[in-house]
Amino acid sequence: MQKRFFLIVSCIFLLSIFLFFDLVGEWGRLTGGWGNLVIFFEESLWPPNWKVLEAQSYPICDSKLDIFCSVAWLGIVETLKIAFIATVFGFLISLPLSVLAASNLSPIYLALPSRILLAGMRSLPAIIWAVLFMIIFDVGALAGIFAMTFYTVGYLGKLQFESMEGIKNAPLEAAKATGMNRFETAWLVAIPESANNLLSHVLFMFEYNVRHGSVVGLVGAGGIGLYLNTYLKLAQYDKVVALLIIIFIVVVIIDFISMTLRSAVNEGGDVERPTWSSLFLPAAFTSSNHPTPMKKETIEESE
């Protein structure tokens, strides 16, 4: 059994090596690539140009602090706004759809079309949705909001209906036997029973949308990505690096907040309460230092 497993794994690995060499083709054309990267890094990327944190010359800055009128601040705040709106709208739309898609809550004639709809919305990446909505709404945040909302519905809907399908059968049976209708069962049983997972997914989705907000911005759908795109076109790579560092810092902060909130709602947690070190260092360096501390309390019989 072990030999056969080893043989299969080896074959898959060798196949991937073969495909890799097949795709690379001629190795000669890679000569000097590393040197080019070093030159590019030294001449164009480093040091980052922190002028992105200074106030723009136009429009005139009314704020006392220059940073509030800077490209970085305006861009990241718009990205956060887009991500927040898309997450809230996406959640509100995906929740009823996920109830319809859950096979333990809805009959197959409702579950199947709902799943197909969610899969359709998920199959196009947010960046493609952004391009489509830019045709309708022109360049700007509105296209970004719609693009991210559509993708959020598809992605969050799948996570949510899988959570609902994972709840215990006994509460559903009790509801069914006592004659509760589908809406009551979903509202009173399925949603509260899977609430921890639903909240965890929403927080994850917000974090995801912030990260991808910069990507959809690249095609003109608002947010910091719009500025990134402009600097890329103007070959101002040092400013691009500065914005990327700012995005990285914001994402790490949101990641930390999100993980803290998610670990609070996941009892016995599938999410480990994070430390700063766990965000930067590989798991092997940190996991033994902070085991998940969530514990169930039990109220003892008072009699």
């Binding site: 215990k168 006994a170 509460p171 559903l172 049976e173 009790a174 509801a175 036997a177 006592t178 004659g179 509760m180 009551e184 009173l188 049983v189 509260p192 029973e193 609430a195 921890n196």
Partner: peptide
């Protein structure tokens, strides 16, 4: 609906809801 009560072996309570909310569920039908 309302006429048939059922207590499954695993009780079928909604763990995240309060005791009162669970009992209200019975009254609701």
């Amino acid at each position: 609906r309302g006429g048939l009560g059922y207590i499954p072996q695993r009780l079928g309570l909604v763990g995240n809801l309060s005791v009162r909310a669970n009992v209200e569920m019975g009254a609701r039908v």
